[in-house]
Design a protein around this nucleic acid. Sequence first.
DNA 1: GGTAGACCTGGACGC
DNA 2: GCGTCCAGGTCTACC
Length: 290
Amino acid sequence: MHLTARPPFSFPAVVHSHGWRQLHPFAWDDQNERLTYLLELPTGRVTRLTFSAAADGLEVQVEPQLTQGEMEYAVRAARWIFGLDLDLQPFYTLARQEPKLAHVPETARGRVLRSATLFEDVVKTILTTNTQWGGTKRMVRGLVENFGAPLDGDTTSRAFPSPARLAELSREQIEAAVKLGYRTPYVLELARRVASGELELEALKDAGLPTDELRKELLRIKGVGGYAAANLLMILGHYDAIPIDSWAHKLVSQEFYGGEPVTPAQIEAVFAPWGEYKGLAYWFWQWETA
DNA sequence: GGTAGACCTGGACGC
DNA sequence: GCGTCCAGGTCTACC
């Protein structure tokens, strides 16, 4: 299957936009430059999507064979995962005027790799908080391996667990399988709210809400604070928020404040001139010390 | 609105 | 091998 992207587009730029390619059920094959992803379909079946670069977009290998309805769902998911329809031209126009960002339009950066569902990305983001990257990878892997639906005939390949699957578990069942620490009730509560229909998370993808309202919605989720909300806003294509974590403090301190400790307000001030694109400006800044 | 302390885990470190 | 300390954001209680 071939999918075209709004130009300019770079397959490796999306894959390497952040660490998501290292989280199950993504798997990055560095040697062959292919990204695989296990996707659970609305029918309950699981498909393996293998993405590689094409001249004007993506080449996608789909297995096993899908029905027409399943294929349409897989195409929509693939377009979302890679942000194939995003228009970043206004940001590129600004970036060309800043030496630290000139590489962005030249290399077609700016898109951020995302999971098929917002539910999956919210859970993954919660699992990045208050832990190191190794811990995040361990926790996500544990959820997928223990609770994800398997590919037909291959129980070693599993999709990310659906809200319904997690919602039917008890806290004790999750704790026995994977140590999420104090995050267990957060993940469980989110899964139950989404599975029950109380929280229509996927509708936020194209709700057309202004950033402030979207941010408020995200902050209502237990376990999502300022950093996590900003990270999720980036994933949702709202770039006027900076995910300020300890790494951001370090980078901005060394680059702009001579190594002196900085406050979140100072970090915001540095990127304020980028307005609605300050999140992207921060994310793709060519740091001296990174 | 701002702040202190608790939350949980893995890893680093000292003994 | 064991105990202690620390890093990493968010929540809750309190002021």
